[in-house]
């Protein structure tokens, strides 16, 4: 049953996604590959929407995946809303319990040497995980692995026009540090231009 499946997957994500922001991304990629509830292309759309709307990105993505996966299965709007509630509740439930326990019993949690020590290994590990998920986004954004497999010509490995747009937007993101919605709009416009050419 899809609701149980989604609840289980997002409970797990809420329990193991540490470090905020895009920490849920590797889990969503993993889900997309294993369960087939949504494609990588759809996941990229969800990231774009989640970064351009209010609220924490992780919560936005959980809501989106819940709604989308159930809608794929049943089609009905109301049941899909239930899917959105299921994934969001499952995502926040582990931390709700953990925070209540910490607030009640562990006043000095933040000063614990094991808690602080955990970040020494967790930060690079999470960076590696998200880096791996980013590779998945490259595959649908500007890599053309399928045509490379056919021709074995390295010129067919990358879609150069898309890659140049990627490089320009990345440069702007790193230089200007404006809100993500600006770059997403820029991407949409460049998509239109690419299609005309």
């Amino acid at each position: 049953m899809i609701f149980m499946r989604l609840f289980y997957e997002f409970f797990k994500t809420g329990l193991f996604a540490i470090g905020g922001g895009l920490a849920t991304l590797p889990f969503l990629y993993d889900m997309s590959d294993r369960l087939g509830l949504f494609t990588r292309q759809e996941l990229a759309t969800m990231i774009a929407v989640s970064e351009s709307t209010p609220g924490p990105i992780g919560v936005n993505m959980a809501t989106y995946v819940g709604f989308h996966s159930v809608q794929n299965e049943y089609g009905s709007f109301l049941i899909s809303v239930l899917g959105a509630f299921t994934t969001t509740a499952a995502l926040v439930l582990p931390s709700l319990v953990i925070i209540i326990i910490i607030a009640k019993f562990l006043a000095k949690f933040g000063e614990n040497k094991f808690v602080n020590g955990a970040f020494y290994t967790l930060r690079p590990a999470v960076a590696g995980l998200i880096g791996a998920a980013v590779l998945g986004i490259y595959q649908i954004a500007f890599l053309t692995i399928d045509s490379f497999k056919k021709t074995h010509n390295f010129m067919d490995f990358i879609d150069f026009k898309s890659f140049i747009i990627f490089a320009v937007i990345l440069f702007l993101v790193l230089k200007l540090k404006k809100h993500p919605i600006i770059y997403i709009a820029l991407g949409a416009v460049s998509g239109l231009i690419l299609a005309v050419n």
Binding site: A44, P124, F142, F166, V189
Partner: peptide, 25 residues
């Protein structure tokens, strides 16, 4: 077509997040 471009922008945004994570962590 727009979504195709949006995916490129998402790739750039997430790359910058990873660069930030590597810098900090």
């Amino acid at each position: 077509n727009m979504l195709m471009g949006v995916r490129i922008a998402v790739a750039a945004l997430v790359t910058s997040a990873v660069i930030e994570l590597i810098r900090k962590g």
